[in-house]
Computed example of a mutant assay.
Amino acid sequence: MAGTIPKKRTRELILELSVPFFAKHGYNGVSMRDIAAAAGLTPAALYYHFPDKEQLYINVVAHEFSGKAVALTIALNSPETAWEWLKKFIETLANLATTDEYFLPLMQRVRLDSNAARQHKLAEYVFKDIFIAVHNLVSELNLRDDAHMLSMSIFGLIFFPLEMGAIRMSMPGYRPEQTDPTVLARHVVDFLHTGIKGIAGEKS
């Protein structure tokens, strides 16, 4: 029928429109009716594309993360030393977290979601490949310590200062340039470099 939006495009439109809803309100604060209204669809039409809210949510997080995953994978596969790979990855992630309006808020909502089964699905479907890549890189840099914990620490060192927002700005020693993703990335890399080398040196 003339003027009908292709099914694939309708699905992409739903995902794009859903990102700010879930980023601002979290899983429990969004209804399928809200998304349907934003997309100009009936609830029945929305359910045609996504069988339930959880499946929509998982696809929304994957949609928001997919483009970032490409950039992060490229950073992790540059023909450099392991430390250069790690530096590029951290710079890329910090830049993405500060330049995309909804990426960091959505990741905060994901982190605070108390539904373990849903988090497991997100881990498997969305985040696992990138985490494995970081885990493998960290293992190459430091064979003596817990690569899982070191990998989680890397993500925490990047996201936590950004999540603190205005609170951090009110703390002693704050300077505006510290919110620059390049400055943040350099701090994280320097901290990890000193820490990992120091720990490895103590145990060697």
Rank of each mutant, 00 (worst) to 15 (best):
K8W: 07
L15I: 09
E16I: 11
F21R: 12
F22V: 09
H25R: 15
G26Q: 04
N28I: 05
N28D: 15
R33I: 11
A36T: 08
A38N: 11
G40N: 10
P43S: 08
A44E: 14
A44R: 12
L46G: 10
Q55V: 08
L56S: 02
I58Q: 09
I58L: 14
F65Y: 14
E80K: 13
A82Q: 10
E84P: 05
L86H: 03
F89T: 02
I90Q: 01
N95T: 14
T98V: 10
D100Y: 12
E101I: 12
F103A: 12
F103C: 03
P105L: 06
M107L: 14
R111I: 10
A116Y: 07
H120M: 05
H120G: 03
L122P: 00
L122H: 02
A123Q: 09
F127W: 06
D129C: 00
I130V: 08
V134K: 08
H135Y: 13
N136I: 08
D146W: 06
D146L: 07
A147N: 08
A147V: 02
M152G: 01
G156F: 07
A166K: 14
R175G: 07
R175P: 01
Q178G: 14
D180C: 06
T182W: 02
V188F: 00
V189W: 00
F191N: 06
L192A: 07
T194P: 00
K197T: 04
I199E: 01
I199T: 08
